Amino acid sequence: MDLTLEVISPATPLPSAVGNAAYRILQESITNVIRHAGPTLVTVALNSGTDFLEIRVTDNGRRSKSRDESADRPSGKGVDTRAEPGRGILGMRERCRLLGGEFDAKPTPDGGFEVMAQLPLAPTGSNL
């Protein structure tokens, strides 16, 4: 897997609940790439605004086009498709919700997959 890190704005200190959630979302997103796409190109983009931290993890999908790429990719609706079912997307969505953030996970038009999380820097929910 080739990984590119894009830091769009300067890093700012994060509240511990936000930092922990961001770490787990990145960890789960990259685990899902390894599990569902295998060797591919991955871009991790971090954008820390004044009120939020935005995380985007995008992969280019399977490098081999020999089979239906969507057959065992997560659906983005919290339920994995034909690969062994997991709780990764549900867990990431729940982490965002607990902090008052936003979450989206979906296939990209070019056959890849993207996870986007926006976490408020002043969490409104429970600490993780």
Results as ranks from 00 to 15, higher is better:
64 S>Y: 05
17 A>C: 02
1 M>K: 03
104 D>E: 13
80 D>W: 00
107 P>M: 12
7 V>Y: 00
23 Y>N: 05
113 F>H: 11
29 S>L: 10
115 V>D: 06
28 E>I: 12
25 I>R: 01
17 A>I: 01
126 S>W: 08
94 E>Y: 09
79 V>D: 15
73 R>Y: 11
59 D>K: 00
88 G>T: 05
122 A>H: 10
85 P>D: 11
30 I>K: 03
48 S>W: 02
49 G>P: 02
34 I>Y: 03
44 V>F: 01
26 L>Q: 04
3 L>N: 00
5 L>V: 09
21 A>Y: 03
6 E>Q: 03
116 M>T: 15
87 R>H: 14
119 L>C: 06
41 L>T: 13
113 F>P: 05
115 V>K: 00
88 G>R: 01
71 A>L: 10
95 R>K: 10
23 Y>A: 13
106 K>L: 15
74 P>Y: 01
1 M>Q: 07
98 L>T: 13
43 T>S: 13
5 L>P: 00
4 T>D: 13
86 G>T: 11
94 E>W: 06
67 R>K: 09
16 S>M: 10
123 P>R: 08
81 T>G: 07
2 D>V: 01
8 I>F: 01
76 G>E: 14
74 P>G: 04
114 E>D: 08
36 H>V: 09
19 G>E: 14
9 S>Q: 12
117 A>N: 05
26 L>V: 10
62 R>T: 06
1 M>S: 09
23 Y>K: 07
111 G>H: 13
79 V>A: 11
47 N>D: 15
28 E>G: 02
62 R>D: 09
13 P>E: 13
28 E>M: 07
105 A>V: 08
58 T>Q: 13
128 L>H: 09
79 V>F: 04
